[in-house]
Design a protein around this nucleic acid. Structure first.
Lengths: 212, 212
DNA sequence: ACTGGAATGTGAATTTTTTAACAAAAGCTC
DNA sequence: GAGCTTTTGTTAAAAAATTCACATTCCAGT
């Protein structure tokens, strides 16, 4: 119930819970026990109760959790009970895919600005959005109330993109570029690198640890 | 040195080490200490030595690690010192972006087959690759020696894609679709969900824990 | 109202992961 | 080649995360 420190792993699991709960909801299930949810998420049921306990008491003893209520509670706990305005820097392949990705609006992350420094791309319309010069970031961040910056530039340009975003007053950055960047400590920084999943798969297939 | 059980977090960090080491190499640095590498990766130096110790002894006492050697050693440890043939199922926005993503071949994951069940898409050429009907998976997996399956279908079709892949004899699956799937225990399964990074960002920005 | 059954929330125990500390080893200087 | 410096590999300690276990609470049926 007290907010103390929340493990990163808990946040990741909460994302899973929302996913699975949404499926339950679609199937018409109204109430679910931690046991049943745990099974569907492939985790321990205490884990679920512990994770939820960081944020409050959402269940009913002897009954379980009301699916819709729990979804709402988790979303509120995470701060995704409202929309977040995002700006994307670097309109390459990955950038374009994210701009077109329907899950973004669906999950409440609205990409309102697309930026690039390539003169060929500036002015182009992607998904009804005009690509704007990165130098205009400060003006646009204010104008569009952007809070989260998405970096999808090539690695060598990620740091500069971050500098622009920070200078423009962004609050958090999600870096999809395969390079480390540094930002002031008050900016929340997340790295997205899905290749480590491929590495893990390669490792496990190669050195098949079939004993687990 | 002994392979026992390797934490998932270690694998993720090894990916970071490779990334940072590659940058060092590009800058012309030949030797690096765990201390300096740790700083660049924002982790503890013991952590690095511990992580590496799972796989062997790669450093020289009093000197540090030879950058190129260490990259090679980590890659070999992870089983990415060779190419892996991948098949992608679901050629939507995300699927297309992955097919075009230059990092895949660069990192040794070669997408050799693209599959979809939409008759409109079948036959289309993306990145020099013809989109093939998902029903042909068994034949193609054998023909192209595919080992890793990438699922980028809509959530409701992810399970069926997995079934096709498993039936076709794939060894591992990376699921980008936002839904849980079940596969036999001998198939290595990884979920990719970058939205949890957005959730984490939203959470930290919203409930700014600026005390850390 | 009372009883039995069910499932939460939580403190305690366990396991895992991270960090600290240091002995062993390598190179460099004289 | 002895002594000094450096930095690894590794053992021990600390911290963190997970799982267990159960008292507490709620609902349903009588």
């Amino acid at each position: 119930m007290k907010s103390e420190h929340i493990p990163k792993a808990t946040i990741a699991r909460l994302a899973t819970y929302i996913q699975v709960l949404s499926e339950f909801k679609r199937e018409g299930t109204d109430v679910v026990s931690s046991e049943r949810l745990a099974e569907a998420c492939a985790v321990n049921s205490s884990q679920i109760r512990k994770d939820l306990a960081y944020f409050g008491e959402f269940g009913v003893r002897g009954v379980g959790y009301y699916v819709q209520d729990l979804i709402t509670s988790i979303k509120r706990s995470l701060g995704i009970d409202r929309a977040w305005n995002c700006g994307l820097v670097g309109v390459g392949n990955l950038g374009r895919a994210l701009l077109r990705h329907r899950e973004f609006p669906r999950k409440g992350f609205i990409i309102r600005g697309a930026f690039d420094c390539d003169p060929y791309k500036i002015g182009e319309i992607v998904e009804g959005m005009e690509i704007v010069c990165s130098r205009q970031l400060p003006a646009k961040v204010k104008e569009l109330s952007l809070e989260i910056g998405i970096i999808t530039t090539p690695p060598e340009r990620a740091q500069r993109a971050a500098n622009y975003l920070v200078g423009a007053g962004i609050k958090g950055i999600i870096n999809f570029a395969p390079s480390r960047i540094s930002v002031p400590s008050h900016i929340h920084l997340e790295y997205v690198d899905f290749f480590h999943h491929f590495y893990a798969a390669a490792f496990h297939i190669r050195f098949a640890d079939h004993q687990e």
